[in-house]
Design a protein around this nucleic acid. Structure first.
Lengths: 156, 156
DNA sequence: TTCATACCTTAACCTACATTAAGGCTATTT
DNA sequence: AAATAGCCTTAATGTAGGTTAAGGTATGAA
């Protein structure tokens, strides 16, 4: 667990090996996965990281993992002194924005069956290594309902 | 209408005055608002803009508006030659990512009543100038259901 | 071996929201 | 003044997905 609700997100984390989930909880205590991060991906609650306000999110390992972390002051130093870093982090964040925008649209405009199919196509590696509990939480449905969906599919 | 589904998003658009919506449609033809952009905000389908693939989204004015637009080649020129631009656009995109992430979590973890209340608090200006049809499409519900929600609230 | 824990599935019933259809209000056009 | 077109509302009926509860399976520990 590298970030807990109520604490400030102090690090931008780079995943070397393993896999993490970032999630929030509702008033009933149900967890909702916002995103996953596996090898060579970055993860942080950017809102909390920059504002230094308590986060509403958790970031937690799903497997034994190795990571690299950078603090805000060090990252800001790099942004100011090594211009390439602005570039690289701009591109990283742009990609995440595009991904999230597609996901929001998909959430609005398709049913769980379709969203599950897209997930399997888009992240075959994650689909293999994650439990259906985690995938259901990412799709925004209960594990029970995902199970129903899977039963309907004759597929692989 | 500055972007249509099926066309490549050729410009990053800055809104000087007025208001725009970016939306996608589902197979039944219903529109779903991804985001709004009013004065001093940027809007583009970044996925299409960078990949130069046809967009799945529309960007359309909701009011008579004035805008400034920059093309990809010109923006890339600025990124390479004026280092401040990487910085500024990184920050802009980070803010949008944070906003979208909050919204995704809200969509997962609260009901329409709560999402509507948050929208009113977060964007009081937009709430005033947009029709309920547009707000419903942003919240991900039908105008009929939004109407029911509003009837339950004794509020302003 | 037995027990514990975590995950997956099934099924009956329930709820939030969609769908359809209708009617009213306001603004603009003719 | 009448007609058209958007927008908002109400209400009935329908459906995707949630809830609850139970049982099944795999893994690992004692």
């Amino acid at each position: 667990m590298i970030l807990q609700e109520g604490f400030v997100c102090k690090h931008y984390t780079f995943v070397v090996t393993g896999c993490f989930k970032m999630y929030g909880t509702d008033e009933k205590g149900n967890a909702h996965n916002i995103s996953f991060a596996a090898e060579n991906d970055w993860i942080a609650d950017l809102g909390s990281f920059y504002s230094e306000k308590p986060s509403k999110l958790f970031i937690e390992a799903l497997e034994p993992s190795t990571i690299l972390q950078i603090e805000k002051t060090d990252l800001l130093f790099l942004f100011v002194n090594v211009t390439k870093f602005d570039r690289n982090f701009r591109v990283i964040v742009e990609e995440k924005l595009i991904e999230l925008q597609n996901r929001l649209l998909l959430n609005f405009s398709s049913n769980t069956q379709q969203r599950y199919t897209v997930f399997l196509e888009q992240y075959p590696n994650l689909a293999m290594r994650l439990s259906n509990v985690q995938i259901a939480s990412y799709l925004g449905v209960t594990p029970e309902f995902l199970s129903k969906i899977r039963a309907q599919k004759p597929s692989k």
